[in-house]
Design a protein around this nucleic acid. Sequence first.
DNA 1: GGATTACTCGTACGCGTGTTCGAATAGTGG
DNA 2: CCACTATTCGAACACGCGTACGAGTAATCC
Lengths: 340, 340
Amino acid sequence: MATLADVARRAGVSPATASRIINGSSKPVTEALRERVLAAVEELQYVPNAHAQLLARSHRSAVGVVVHDVSDPYFAEITRGLQRVATENERLVIICNSYRDPEKELQYVELLRAHQVAAIVLAGSGYHDEKFTETMNSKLRAYESTGGRAVVIGRHDHAGDAVVPDNEMGGYLLGAELYALGHTEIGVVAGPKLLTTTTDRIAGLRRAAREHGQKLPARRVAYGDFDRDGGASAAATLLDAAPEITAIAALNDPMAIGVLALLRARGIDVPGQISVTGFDDMPVARDVTPALTTVRLPLADMGARAMTLALQEPVDGREPRIEEVGAELVRRESTGPLPR
Amino acid sequence: MATLADVARRAGVSPATASRIINGSSKPVTEALRERVLAAVEELQYVPNAHAQLLARSHRSAVGVVVHDVSDPYFAEITRGLQRVATENERLVIICNSYRDPEKELQYVELLRAHQVAAIVLAGSGYHDEKFTETMNSKLRAYESTGGRAVVIGRHDHAGDAVVPDNEMGGYLLGAELYALGHTEIGVVAGPKLLTTTTDRIAGLRRAAREHGQKLPARRVAYGDFDRDGGASAAATLLDAAPEITAIAALNDPMAIGVLALLRARGIDVPGQISVTGFDDMPVARDVTPALTTVRLPLADMGARAMTLALQEPVDGREPRIEEVGAELVRRESTGPLPR
DNA sequence: GGATTACTCGTACGCGTGTTCGAATAGTGG
DNA sequence: CCACTATTCGAACACGCGTACGAGTAATCC
């Protein structure tokens, strides 16, 4: 691998001069030397060693992002927003998938810190795990105390900057819609119990239930993975355990699509016999049949705002900035009035 | 930021000893010292500087990946496979989105090289751009000549290791299916003209046409972006230019979904009046209505195989390894016999 | 008891680059 | 022709860490 010294030798100059030319330093350099050096760079296909550069000028440029799974459309959308702002600021983004493994999440934070990233963005739900939360918090604090910036998306347990979607309100909107349509026996197809996203969304559904004089017994909540297959199997469980239900609220869109697939397989009409709702308003939600009634979260925008926060200079003693992001009901064809 | 020297000072040992303990060196260290050092690490929340580490032991660990857009399900799926194998080998993956900008693609290759990655995986279609291809090739050669590993997914212009999906065969399968159903006037909703993926898939369709004594005039090919909206607008163009068509072959699933949306909006029944096919068999293809007839590419598997190739030690003088990946027709409800 | 060995630990250097500081050269005015 | 300044360039060091080598000490054997 060609090194700066190689380039300098070949151009017959000192490494210092070569460095100045390559990095466009403010120091002046003669045109003749500049050409010689650039020619040498081209011939040797020289690329400066980024590690040596970052070591030399302790200048943090990259930004780290930890998501559950970037191939999950939910995180893909958030990542899109993160990337956009990062690119605008000429930052490289390092993406790490935790696959919802808290242990791996901690490891990645250390790894990103080791890579001297300027900021760390943690995207995804929090965990109901006191010990993990504590450990993660202390790691982020330590990172911030050395000048790093930490921003979380959608978890409320970190006492720093955050972009928080109103999951509770989203759940409430869906619940209110279903109760308004006359449904009283509502089933929930939920994501992993351990995630705060799951419990927050259920909490919203419960609040809607209370306001309409209804209840949401645990028997009518089935848990599964936050994907299509998880939705299908949870729906199967739910139909067996509570066959009286006339509506199913799935806690994200992929799960809702799984629910639709299962109902179709069982010959149950949607929304004729059972209404179905999703959550997040993924692009797909428009294209399934029936098109999903769901709640929209501005995911790409959330990512963009998180990255914007992350790239702002830290201000000592400033209150942590918390950006609340609203949820918005999107009515489509998968919900209908209570069948008689 | 705490440094190794800080830890050593606090533990009352030399930096060398601290390094040995932290990295689990084979050299023996007394238990008492080990505890003192680990305690210091904990107290100072010390994380070794990855750049300094990588500079010191010129050991390349990370792997770089350049895709068009990771939030595109096509690349999300490939990335999933890449990540899986990388994680199994304890490698960090750096993902870069080129957004189909050749210039950015070159920049990212340099950036990854600068970061001393052990391998670079270029995923995505090639471009019909002689100059770009040449430049990229010389960059990859230079990288490989210094011990780096380069693997491309789906472009045939790089003379190195590659995982190549049989796009031409996929196009052929779809064309053969449509002609077998009796269609003769087939329209194509194609991706960007500049991409080899687009032209390869069209080539397959053309071969099928020839074998059935038909032609595929340029008038019946509409180009657009490789996404839902591109599909919808290309379909609109196509319907205006060639209203006689009874089948539309979209060159990827998102475009096909856009086609379906447009046909639905215009009240045209699928497959009653017009048959539609997709390409790639994204998970969504099952869930739209009607479910898409398409061609399956084992995307995650392609990613996994590419990463496996990338992590293999380079062998001098070995023939470049080219893994061909087959395409498989998936019949669903969006295609039917020619309406009379 | 002395010498040899085994075992630990510390000192010093190299990784590739950015940057400071001083030296050398050219240029200009008197 | 000399002196002074402006302008460039190079030598040397710092960045944080891994590690070869050597020094120091305790243990063992004769």
